[in-house]
Structure formats: structure tokens, C-alpha cells
Design a protein around this nucleic acid. Structure first.
Length: 650
RNA sequence: GGCGAGAUAGCUCAGUUGGCUAGAGCAUACGGUUCAUACCCGUAGUGUCGAGGGUUCGACUCCCCCUCUCGCUACCA
């Protein structure tokens, strides 16, 4: 019987910098699923890679004084090294700068254009460079990008658009007919309610504002929008050709069985990507899983907070498999998971060192002590063995059930339940007591045989999650790795085999204090803001203005005499601001950073001749100015010396 | 503001179509054991199952209404 195929992908990593542990998690998760499917007997193809185009990279390369290609070569190499370090078993590492990918993207764009799904138009509006996105004036937040909060510049571009609306109904129907398509299911509602049901906007799929991208074949001053470029990696990587000359591999593998992605890019994978595929007359992927994020203790990881964890650092401390174990096991299915050094140590000690490592160690020690390492099934069974065997034989099915639902963390727990059961078996049978009774030698041998056999089965099931550990255990036991088909029998360990006479410690226990001291040395706890101030924040320069332009704006000092939250809104505070002799009502989106109480009495900088507008139904007559850092933290701008309300700022 | 998810033991959570004294893991306490990496095994807990009301013989589970948290989204200068 031919093996059933299973095609799994991760999102391709953006080559703007070194990936943190959260990015790494995704690849490890995909790897665990891929490896498990292989164990089950599937013909698995696992693709990952790097997304290398876009203005952000063009800018980064310029900063670094290298060409974009040199820049992405370096970063892509670093990313690949980390994927390798984590022992991920990908079959293909695609780069969007690969020649065949670029060639195919050009053809795809052309085909969509020829088909009429892409048309030429104009885009006018505010452009956010880092996000490479256009917004209408009304979409902006405080005049800034609604996604990243950075300033936008007015821009007008000739651009190509994709007719999303043409396929919207089909996509809605598809999602309704395939409840498994979007996982976790809660995300499905978000996509339906926020985008599909209200009506899809056409998507701008080309850019002229930068060069580092795949040029549009028939109009080379345009480059293909990064998402159209990036998403198609899933088909170009396995040999798709839109002229009908696709490889056998493509015909076999497509549609993908699972796209594994972060929850932040679900929209691209469950709306735009399926529609692109419809345009190409290709079947849609079977499932898209938007996994949650791995956060570090005190909030989302970010470089400027200085709390970024990198895979290679963690590996230095704990080893590859401990890190794999941690990220896979500590990550819930729907909610974000938390990783800290302390938690890492705790898990390593209790689960890996105590439960698993110690089990293997004590079993091998006893075999050596009592039988010179020879493990023999002398068939001196007792009723207590039946329960152990039954338990062991049930485990593979339970693990598979969890894996089928992508509940990887729960699947690991199932594997470890076997190790716990084996520890209990030792207490039930008390080998050390049997050893003292000469008439119980056969029984003792049988008990040890059952232990070695049970551990062999558990170790084999562990392979998807901790491949290196599986190997190490089996080597020490002198056992073969078991495929799925040989996990349904208890007693396949070759009777008479000899285990190693020098059991190595699988996982050494670590002392939290010592680890934390080392971490402290590695990352001295400097106050981050200082470092950040030094680095400063570079903004995309706006167009030059004249003095007359400046003079049009009237800035004055305003004193906040009262302030309250705007009831119908989450972000807004409504302040009464004294400016000269008059009092104005100004609404500001700063609720997350200031309480109404602390606003009162503050002297702030106000843009007073801004056209009044209604926000959340409340009139706002001006704008209170704030400084904003990269995190979106706001700070009111106040006069350095005492100034009366109404003083002009010029 | 719209849509959605959630609130259960100190912590992290599980509780399938309403039904036996509400569960697991970690942490805590106590007991057992010594083969082993001061490890392993067992026992014990504690819960107004977010607040209030309703339906029912019976509600953690269904309905209504609050409060709070979270996600997505939106015309929040």
C-alpha cells in the first residue's frame, strides 16, 4: 500500500533579524508534527524557509552598508543555522530569493492579470513604510499607522489591485463547509465577522516605492507585494508551474495538509492565500493553524525591553531537547504560553531529570547490578504486569489522538504518563527486595525486562518531540527504535540483550540560583530605557515643509482642568483644557497610559487650530501632543518651565 | 462601538448531550521506600465552580442580567 502523503509548512521567517525563541517555537512545533506523522507511516514533506523581500530589508541593508542580497544571505543563513541547531527535520528550506521562486511569482502575477483578477489602478492615501501598507486618512490613528503606530506619509501610487470580492462568496462557503479549515476555531469567527461578511476590499498587490522585490514581469517599475510573493512559497517550493508544467512532487503534495503559522498572520493565510489559490484554480489547503505566542514572563518579548530569549542561548544552558520539550509542552493550544528561566529549570528538573532521566538510570543500574547488564525475559509474569502492559499498549493511541487535534503539549503528557507508570511499576515490584531472595531471580529478570521494554516503547514515542533523547535512551538500552506498527506488541525487546554498563545522565539537575546568576552575568540587568535613548529612534522622514506650512499650525500650552474616560471607548480620555481664557474639550487616545486623575493639573502642548471632529461621538477641539516610543508608550509633552495656559509654542 | 472567547483548588487548567460525595498536574503537608540524578511511590486536603436571578426533581453545565479579563475589529486627530 502506498504511503499517504502529508505536506506541512511553517510560515517563512522574515529576514530582518535573528529569530527569537517565539519564532523558533513555530518550527519546532511543525517539526514535532512532521516527525510524528512520519512515525505513523505518512510520507511527510516539511517545508520552511525565509521571506526576504520588502522595503524594510532594503532599508536595513542600506543601514548595514551592504546590498539587500548580501544582507538576506547572511540573515537567512543565521535562521537556517538555528533551525538546524534545534534539530528540525525540514525537507525543504525555501528562500523567496530563490531563482525558481522568483520566476514563478512573475508568471503567477502575469496569469492573474491576464485572467482579469489583477487590474491596474491608483492608490492614494497614507503610506506606512515599515508595514508597507496604505491607509486612508480615516484609518489612521493619531495620524499614524493603525498597525504599528509609526508615522505615515502621504503617497500616491500607480498600483495593481487584486479583485478579492470576486472570490469572497466562494471563500465564505468553503469556510462554512470545512469547519476544520481555521484552527483554533475561535479565529474563524474573527475572520468571518471582521472581514468576509462585511465585504472584502480589493487588495493592492504591487509597490513602486522601493526596488527590493520581484519585479512585475510586464511593468518592471512595480514589484510584487510581499505577501503575494511570500504566500506562494507554499506551492513554488514543491514545483508548481502555472503554465501547467508542475512537477510530480507538486501534484502529489498539493493541497497542503497543514499551514502552521502565528496567530498574527491568520488573516493572510485564511483570506488572501485561499483567494489567490482560487484565482489559480488550485485546491485550498486543508488546514491553517494559528498557534499562540510564547511570551516571556513580564509580557510579550521585544528587543527594546531587553527580554528577548534566543534559542541558541537556551540551548547552551539546557540542551536542545530540553528546550524543545519546554516550548512544546508549556504551550497551551489557544492561549499564549509563558517561558522564563526559572520555569525552564523547574521543568527540566522535575520532568526530564527526575521522571525520565532517573527512570532510565535506575533501570540500567539495576540491570547491571543484578544481571551484569543482561536483560532477559524469563516469563515469570505476575498479575501486576498485566496492568503495566495494558497501559503501555494504550499510550500510542492516546498520543495519536492528541496529535490529530494538534494538541502537542497534551501528546507529550501522554508519553510521560508511561514513564510515570513505569516508575510506579518499580515500586510495585520492588526489584531490590526480589534481589535478596535467591528463588526470585527469574521474577527479578522479568521485571527488569518489562521495564526496559516499556522504556523502549516510551523512548520511541518521544522521538517526534525529543529526537536526540530517543536516540540516547535506545543506545543505552541497546534497543531498536520502534515504528508505529511495532508499538502494538509488548515484548519485542530482544531477550538476552545487554544494556550499557555505564549509564550516562540524560538530564542533569540544575540549581535555579546558579542558573539565574549565570543569566545575570550574561545579561546584566541594565535599565533598558537608557540603552534605548542612546540608540534613539529613527523615523521615516516626511516631506520637507515651508515655514508657511509650519505657521499654519497653532500650538499652545493648555492646562488640563478636568478629565474623564470616554464611556463608549476603550482608549479615549476626554479632557477639559484651559487655553487662555477659554476651555476646550479635547479627546485623546491615551487611556492606556494615563488615568484621568493624573491628567488633571498637567500643562500640555496642544495643537489648537485643528479642525474639530467627533470621536466616538464626543466632540474634540484640538489635539494634545505626546511623544511616543517604539513600543507605543506615550508621554505628554510639557513645558520645561512654568508657563501660563495659552502661551504660544513657536 | 461591533463581533467573539473566558472567569472552576495557592498556581496552570480539564470538565463531552444538565444527574452519583466537582477532577488532573505543579506547589504544600504527612507517610512509605532505598535500585536511582536528595530520586521514586502513596495519602491528604482546602473550592459559596465570577455576582445575582430564573427554568428543573436536580445546574459548573440551559436562559436572563450584571462585573471583570482577553482576542479580533472600528471614523478614536
Amino acid at each position: 500500500m502506498e504511503k499517504q502523503k502529508y505536506y506541512i509548512t511553517t510560515a517563512i521567517a522574515y529576514t530582518s533579524g535573528k529569530p527569537h525563541i517565539g519564532n523558533t517555537y513555530e518550527v519546532v512545533l511543525a517539526d514535532a508534527i512532521a516527525r510524528y506523522k512520519r512515525l505513523e507511516g505518512y510520507d511527510v514533506f516539511f517545508q520552511t524557509g525565509t521571506d526576504e523581500h520588502g522595503q524594510k530589508i532594503e532599508l536595513k541593508a542600506e543601514e548595514a552598508g551592504v546590498t539587500p542580497k548580501e544582507f538576506v544571505d547572511k540573515v537567512s543563513g543565521e535562521i537556517k543555522n538555528i533551525w538546524d541547531l534545534m534539530n528540525t527535520s525540514y525537507d525543504k528550506f525555501i528562500r523567496t530569493t530563490d531563482e525558481d521562486h522568483e520566476k514563478q511569482v512573475k508568471k503567477i502575477f502575469k496569469k492573474m492579470y491576464a485572467k482579469g483578477d489583477i487590474y491596474k489602478g491608483h492608490y492614494e492615501g497614507m503610506y506606512c513604510t515599515p508595514c508597507e501598507s496604505f491607509f486612508t486618512e480615516s484609518q489612521l490613528v493619531d495620524g499614524k499607522c493603525p498597525d504599528c503606530g509609526r508615522p505615515c506619509v502621504p503617497a500616491k501610487e500607480e498600483a495593481y489591485f487584486f479583485k478579492m470580492s470576486k472570490y469572497a462568496d466562494r471563500l465564505i462557503q468553503y469556510i462554512k463547509d470545512h469547519p476544520e479549515f481555521i484552527q483554533p476555531e475561535s479565529r474563524k469567527n474573527e475572520m468571518m465577522n471582521n472581514f468576509l461578511l462585511p465585504g472584502l476590499q480589493d487588495l493592492c498587490v504591487s509597490r513602486t516605492s522601493f526596488k527590493w522585490g520581484i519585479p512585475v514581469d510586464f511593468d518592471p517599475k512595480h514589484v510584487v507585494y510581499v505577501w503575494l510573493d511570500a504566500l506562494t512559497n507554499y506551492i513554488t517550493g514543491i514545483g508548481y508551474d502555472c503554465d501547467g508544467d508542475s512537477t510530480e512532487q507538486f501534484k502529489k503534495l498539493w493541497p497542503a495538509d497543514l499551514h502552521l503559522i502565528g496567530k498574527d498572520i491568520i488573516r493572510f493565510h485564511t483570506i488572501y492565500w485561499p483567494i489567490f489559490l482560487m484565482s489559480l484554480d488550485l485546491p485550498l489547503p486543508k488546514q491553517v493553524f494559528g498557534h499562540p505566542w510564547l511570551l516571556q514572563g513580564d509580557g510579550k518579548m521585544s528587543k527594546s525591553k531587553g527580554n528577548v530569549l534566543y534559542a541558541d542561548e537556551l540551548v547552551d544552558f539546557f540542551g536542545v531537547d530540553a528546550v524543545r520539550y519546554f516550548v512544546l509542552h508549556e504551550m497551551p493550544f489557544e492561549n499564549d504560553g509563558v517561558i522564563t528561566w526559572e520555569l525552564m529549570v523547574e521543568r527540566l528538573n522535575s520532568e526530564l531529570a527526575n521522571t525520565l532521566g532517573n527512570l532510565v538510570n535506575r533501570t540500567i543500574s539495576m540491570s547491571n547490578k543484578y544481571f551484569g547488564g543482561v536483560v532477559e525475559d524469563r516469563k515469570a509474569a505476575e498479575p501486576v504486569d498485566d496492568d503495566l502492559k495494558a497501559f503501555a499498549l494504550e499510550v500510542p493511541g492516546r498520543v495519536t489522538a492528541k496529535m490529530d487535534k494538534l494538541r502537542v503539549a497534551d501528546a507529550i503528557t501522554e508519553v510521560f504518563s508511561l514513564f510515570k507508570r513505569l516508575n510506579k511499576y518499580i515500586d510495585e515490584t520492588m526489584p531490590w527486595a526480589l534481589a535478596k531472595d535467591e528463588t526470585k531471580q527469574d521474577r527479578l529478570a522479568t521485571v527488569l525486562y518489562n521495564l526496559v521494554e516499556g522504556i523502549s516503547m516510551g523512548a520511541s514515542l518521544l522521538e517526534a518531540f525529543m529526537p536526540e533523547t530517543t536516540e540516547r535512551i535506545l543506545k543505552q538500552l541497546n534497543a531498536e527504535k520502534r515504528g508505529f506498527e511495532s508499538l502494538n506488541v509488548f515484548g519485542l525487546y530482544p531477550s538476552g540483550n545487554k544494556v550499557t554498563d555505564k549509564p550516562e545522565i540524560l538530564f542533569a539537575r540544575l540549581d535555579v540560583k546558579e542558573v539565574m546568576e549565570k543569566v545575570e552575568k550574561l545579561h546584566p540587568h541594565v535599565e533598558e530605557p537608557a540603552a534605548e535613548e542612546k540608540a534613539g529612534i529613527d523615523l521615516e522622514p516626511k516631506a520637507e515643509i515651508t515655514f508657511e506650512d509650519f505657521e499654519k499650525m497653532q500650538f499652545q500650552v493648555g492646562e488640563i482642568i478636568s478629565c474623564e474616560a470616554v464611556k463608549k471607548s476603550k482608549k479615549l480620555l476626554c479632557s477639559q483644557v484651559k487655553i487662555g481664557s477659554q476651555v476646550r474639550q479635547i479627546v485623546s487616545g491615551i487611556k492606556a497610559h494615563y488615568t484621568p486623575e493624573e491628567m488633571v493639573g498637567k500643562k500640555v502642548m496642544v495643537l489648537t487650530n485643528l479642525k474639530p471632529a467627533k470621536l466616538a461621538g464626543v466632540l474634540s477641539e484640538g489635539m494634545i501632543l505626546c511623544a511616543e516610543d517604539e513600543e507605543g508608550n506615550l508621554s505628554l509633552v510639557t513645558p520645561e518651565k512654568e508657563m501660563p495656559a495659552g502661551a504660544e509654542i513657536c
